[in-house]
Design a protein around this nucleic acid. Sequence first.
DNA 1: CCTTGACCTTCCCATGATGGGAAGCTCCAC
DNA 2: GTGGAGCTTCCCATCATGGGAAGGTCAAGG
Lengths: 149, 149
Amino acid sequence: MNIGEASNASGVSAKMIRYYEEIGLIRPMGRTGNNYRVYGDEEVHILRFIKRARNLGFSLEETETLLKLWQDKSRESAAVKEVATAHIGDLERRIAEMQGMVKTLKHLAHCCGGDTRPNCPILDDLAGDGAVGGDASAPAMKRKTKQHA
Amino acid sequence: MNIGEASNASGVSAKMIRYYEEIGLIRPMGRTGNNYRVYGDEEVHILRFIKRARNLGFSLEETETLLKLWQDKSRESAAVKEVATAHIGDLERRIAEMQGMVKTLKHLAHCCGGDTRPNCPILDDLAGDGAVGGDASAPAMKRKTKQHA
DNA sequence: CCTTGACCTTCCCATGATGGGAAGCTCCAC
DNA sequence: GTGGAGCTTCCCATCATGGGAAGGTCAAGG
């Protein structure tokens, strides 16, 4: 199987497959005489594992950890659960942060006429003029991962 | 006022102030004889506007739009509201996406013993073995912005 | 046999917003 | 005049991904 077929079978782009190899997330693949990478069902399975982990929002680093645990037949399930629960906590923190933004924004948008007049409570809030805005002061934590498009 | 004072007064790091100037978000500042940038209350006000917009999750591009609307005294509040509501929609989409992940992950974590045994439904799901996992298939939209730390 | 097009390879660059740090200048206080 | 704090510019790193160029390879069809 060439990289294109492996890509189709796994849902991971060829570009990303090469990248994962480069950063050591997956082992360097064997090559044919023409220098093409060769993949088998095993590799496709691993790529799909990675794909699914990414879809659940795990970073590549976390995915690597999970991958190693998956391949370690003597792992303790507690280790896996710990990674998962930490990630859940992370997601929930980010969700709460964004919900705070939404709450404030909805309030401001509700107060804004949205017509042809220039008067606008949203801008007033951003400018710090009004005491309208809610709690958008906490700078928030760094984003850990980004979803692919 | 030097850049350090402007930074303190606005909550925007000196590094970012220079960056905002570089990308044209704020006008290049006047310099003193020693080549130091000089800031006044007006500039600090603008920086705080930017800071607040960023805290509400607006991208720098959206922030620029809002900034221009703010400075355009003949704006129509509808234009501002449109930017805000689009951003709300964006946030809500991302929240829903992450909530989907959380839901799936919580279910999986709940099913996982989290003990010393290797058996783990979380890994089984990632491996695609079980029919346990929920809907983490939709690839999701690109992240538009990232919160600073 | 040769062309065409679809693959594959590597390499570099861009994204978005931010921080880190080096090298070199200035300014102020002691 | 010296030390340290603050300013300047410049380059690099992050995280995960895509875009694209330049060049090799292969299979099918003329």
